[in-house]
């Protein structure tokens, strides 16, 4: 076994193991912390695939924003420490069966994909990929309009938030 395979197995075990911990922990904060570990593991897999950009985006978006948001939400809605919840209810069996069926059928469908058992070609790494992505996002033939719509929406949300944070002026009162 090559060393990179060992590293991959460690990463995969990290992702799967901590994902199981996320759904089984009774302490919600611990579950959220294991979620951070899972997301870091996914970032590690991206690094192994030499997709540094996606690894970094994974950390910035999922750990830097979403996981923090989840932890904040838990903290403001629950007691400080030692608050536990029951992770399973009586629908757990059905949920487990459904997820097994769903992931099994996904793997079965993917196995008919011609590239499933081939070695992936070596990807271009470095500057070039990001440049290509940027060109694709901002070219009229590519994804210019969705990108613009998303950015205008975000800008509108930001401006609205700033506007609503100002005190109400006297004329409106």
């Amino acid at each position: 076994m090559e060393p990179i395979q060992i590293v991959f197995l460690i990463g995969a075990a990290l992702v799967l193991g901590s994902a199981v911990m996320v759904v089984t922990r009774r302490n919600l904060i611990h579950a959220a912390l294991f979620l951070i570990l899972t997301l870091s593991g996914v970032a590690m897999i991206f690094v192994l695939l030499e997709a540094f950009y996606w690894a970094v985006i994974q950390v910035v978006v999922y750990i830097g924003a979403i996981a923090i948001l989840i932890i904040m939400a838990i903290m403001v809605t629950r007691n400080v420490t030692g608050d536990t919840v029951k992770p399973f209810n009586n629908m757990a069996v059905w949920a487990a069966m459904l997820s097994v069926v769903a992931s099994g059928s996904l793997i079965w469908a993917l196995s008919y994909w011609p590239a499933f058992d081939q070695t992936a070609p070596v990807a271009d790494t470095g500057e070039y990929v990001i440049r290509l992505l940027g060109l694709e996002l901002f070219s009229a033939e590519g994804y210019l309009i969705p990108t613009m719509i998303a950015s205008v929406l975000l800008l509108a949300a930001l401006i609205a938030a700033i506007k609503s944070a100002f005190p109400i002026s006297q004329e409106e009162e």
Binding site: I29, L33, I36, F52, Y53, V56, I57, V59, V60, I63, G64, A65, A67, I68, I71, M72, M75, V80, T81, T125, G126, E127, I130
Partner: peptide, 27 residues
């Protein structure tokens, strides 16, 4: 790294996790 600046942002986001963790776990 070709994504050096993004990497700095990613490293910084762990600092926020540390602050939250310290504040919460101190009880």
């Amino acid at each position: 790294l070709s994504v050096g600046v993004m990497y700095v942002a990613a490293a910084g986001s762990f600092g926020i996790v540390a602050v939250l963790l310290a504040g919460w776990s101190s009880n």
